[in-house]
Design a protein around this nucleic acid. Structure first.
Length: 369
DNA sequence: CGAATTTGACCTGCGC
DNA sequence: GCGCAGGTCAAATTCG
């Protein structure tokens, strides 16, 4: 109950990780980035491609003109609606990797388990870099929490089948006292199907990263083997069932793992080219996340680069659907994040990181399991 | 007062 | 079947 008002602040840099549509018990692949050099530990499982992360350093980011504008463009282009992903074709996009046949669907690494999201999340171990020193970004406030709450209920239905939404709603209306029981009923016997998930991992002192969408926190759970709790967010837009999970790595407390699940059914609430007035500005309220002026550009970029250098992403694809995650797994939320990064000349690094990871061929993955 | 967060309870899936 | 852990709900609480 003791509510910490600080919770409402916003976010800083992105963390992005791979997702999975955990069809049935499909968990995210474990990932490990070791020590200082970004060198993945090879995985035995699939005999996939192995890359040395140490080779992947960040190229100097190209000077960006407009922050908000570019970001929003990208948001619109890639993130607005899930349906848009098909047409998204930025060559350097993080999502291209997911959408293309490139078997990067799964980046797998051996990992001593202490991962924040045991069994589902990944772990990053990096050389500690300068975390965001000051975070004062805005919060994603203003959403209609009630709707989101409702969506939350629907989530369960969606998991089991959208056709049951109405039916379940009726039940709820007629018997509010047993909502949970109803929920249980509904979900029983139905294989819960998760939306594609993408996780971003970044070094940040702020847990909840502002990706341009409005989120409402609907839960928090203590994570096993981690002193840090995991927070659950849901997109506040009506009808949008996108969820976001935020947790901090127990191994490296400076690392935040943000997992997106689902696709936004709406454009980002942030107005494109909002300039100084649009919501996008909140994204960059944090001096470390914005490029207030070209004067400070290098400095900020440097810090962001460090973050990204230490960030890597993975796509936790359910073992059975690895091959199909290419286009559908790209959540708009993640797209927004990637767009942001790409717009700032940072995404490439993220991609690089991903590509340097061990790539497991779908078949191999299946065999492995 | 509306919106967002907190937090304990509850539910589900999974491993043993 | 039981227990554990993850995930979600929703009343209470807090904030703007």
């Amino acid at each position: 109950m003791a509510r910490s008002g600080g919770e409402r602040r916003a976010n800083s840099a992105f963390t992005m990780a791979g997702g999975s549509s955990g069809g049935g018990g499909g968990d995210l692949e474990e990932i490990l980035m070791q020590g200082s050099g970004f060198s993945f530990s090879g995985t035995a499982g699939g005999g996939g491609i192995y890359y040395d992360m140490q080779q992947m350093m960040l190229p100097p980011p190209p000077p960006q003109s407009g922050f908000g504008g570019g970001f929003m463009e990208l948001l619109d282009a890639s993130g607005g609606c899930g349906a848009d992903f098909g047409g998204y074709s930025a060559p350097s996009s993080l999502f291209d990797l997911f959408q293309t046949p490139f078997p990067a669907a799964t980046v797998q690494l051996d990992l001593p388990m202490s991962s924040p999201a045991a069994g589902e999340s990944s772990e990053v171990v990096n050389n500690p870099t300068t975390p965001n020193s000051s975070i004062s970004s805005s919060s994603n406030e203003g959403g209609n929490s009630k709707k989101s709450s409702k969506d939350g209920k629907n989530r369960l239905k969606e998991d089991g089948g959208e056709e049951e939404e109405e039916e379940q709603d009726e039940e709820k209306n007629t018997n509010n006292s047993s909502k949970k029981q109803l929920k249980a009923k509904k979900t029983k016997g139905q294989k819960k199907q998760r939306e594609p998930r993408f996780a971003f991992m970044t070094k940040s002192e702020v847990d909840h990263l502002d990706d341009g969408y409005r989120w409402r926190k609907y839960g928090q759970k203590a994570v096993k083997n981690s002193p840090y709790p995991r927070s659950y967010y849901r997109c506040t837009s009506a009808g949008c069932g996108v969820k976001k999970r935020v947790e901090r790595s127990s191994d490296d407390t400076s690392i935040v793992v943000t997992t997106y699940e689902g696709q936004h059914t709406h454009p980002s609430p942030i107005t494109p080219r909002s300039g100084s007035g649009g919501g996008i500005r909140h994204l960059f309220a944090d001096p470390l996340n914005i490029l207030p002026s070209y004067h400070h550009y290098n400095q900020h970029i440097h810090q962001q680069q460090q973050q990204l250098q230490n960030a890597y992403m993975y796509n936790s694809t359910p073992s059975h659907n690895i091959t199909t995650t290419t286009t559908t797994s790209a959540t708009s939320a993640a797209a927004a994040a990637s767009s942001f990064l790409r717009d700032n000349g940072l995404l490439q690094d993220m991609v690089t990181c991903q590509m340097t990871g061990k790539v497991v061929e779908p078949k191999e993955e299946e065999q492995r399991l």
